[in-house]
Design a protein around this nucleic acid. Structure first.
Length: 310
DNA sequence: CGTTCAACCTGGGCGC
DNA sequence: TGCGCCCAGGTTGAAC
């Protein structure tokens, strides 16, 4: 479930935990797959308790909490990867039985007291992971070798350098976190629709102007989705840390809209399967092998659109 | 190099 | 109502 906009919304929502001391850590018994927590839960707990959460960050689709003994810099990193159904919560969980991690936080010893907080990781399917790293080993998992440039910042040159010679279909390639970090199945579809490119188009046939347009659309769509607090499709899906759903699903142009009219051209949104995953696109706006013709709204950023894609 | 498949899990929705 | 099947926002590793 969570892609970059949802994880970024979690990150922002977790701001209140910064500076708080970890008073207790629990992994409710029997609810965690053996490999989903590393090192072993009791080791993670022992290393966390008594330290403070110094930073809350994000790497691609992962929440990264910096653990420190103030005033020192973080010496450890708690990396939470929500995968399909994971949620970071500062509110009551949707169900009690899928709570995977409980972190009790309290204000640091000195200074005016702050309210204590309980931070939860809730994950219905249990595919998410919780891992603790030291400063050095964080790079092996969240470093440049594993994650490409962040989707909010990626440039056309970076995409072209990483994917320009690939034979893969562009939509499949956009899901590769080494190419660009944070794009998932929803936003890959939305990005390609905005830029008018057929999701089946081979990367190697996309010229530089096309990569620039894709990068522009990637930043634009992801930033807009962040502004709308991500996408929540259905009752039991993504929620922000306060339990409120996102609102970007109302602005989806193709994802989940099979058979419905494309708001841009009136054509019928189509669903295909690529790499075992659904791809939604509009054949009218995203004609095979070429860029979309006119008729779409101008890019508000004012940047050049896809001129030059043959 | 790229694709396909299975696996990790739970649960909602649908057809019968 | 119940059963079986397909679907789901992610990632990984094996097989071809």
């Amino acid at each position: 479930m969570p892609e970059l906009p949802e994880v970024e919304t979690m990150r922002r929502g977790l701001a209140p935990v910064v500076g708080l001391r970890i008073a207790a850590v629990r992994f409710p018994r029997g609810l965690v797959r053996p490999l989903s927590v590393r090192p072993r839960p009791h080791v993670v707990a022992a290393r966390l308790v008594g330290h403070a959460i110094a930073t809350v960050g994000r790497r691609g689709k992962r929440v990264v909490l910096g653990i420190a003994a103030p005033p020192a810099e973080p010496h450890a990193w708690l990396v939470i990867e929500p995968r399909m159904t994971g949620l970071m919560l500062l509110a009551d969980p949707p169900t009690a039985e899928h709570v995977r991690l409980v972190v009790d936080l309290e204000s640091s010893a000195a200074g005016p007291s702050r309210p204590s907080l309980r931070m939860l990781f809730w994950d219905r399917r249990g595919l998410g992971t919780i891992r603790l790293f030291d400063a050095r080993s964080l790079e092996s998992v969240c470093g440049a070798a594993r994650l490409g440039p962040d989707g909010l910042l990626v440039t056309g040159e970076e995409l072209a350098a990483r994917l320009g010679s690939s034979r893969r279909a562009i939509k499949v390639a956009l899901l590769d976190q080494r190419a660009v970090a944070g794009v998932g199945n929803i936003y890959a579809a939305e990005i390609l629709h905005r830029v008018g490119i057929d999701p089946r188009m081979a990367c190697r046939s996309i010229p530089l102007a096309g990569w620039q347009a894709i990068a522009n659309a990637t930043r634009l769509v992801l930033a807009e989705a962040v502004r709308f607090a991500g996408s929540s499709i259905g009752d039991r899906t993504y929620r922000a840390v306060d339990g409120r759903p996102g609102r970007f699903q109302h602005r989806h142009r193709v994802y989940g809209r099979e058979g419905l009219a494309c708001a841009t051209c009136g054509g019928s949104v189509t669903r295909i399967v690529q790499a075992q995953r659904s791809t939604f696109f509009c054949p009218g706006c995203q004609p095979r092998g070429r860029r979309g013709a006119g008729g779409r709204r101008p890019d508000r950023s004012g940047r050049t659109r896809t001129a030059g894609i043959r």
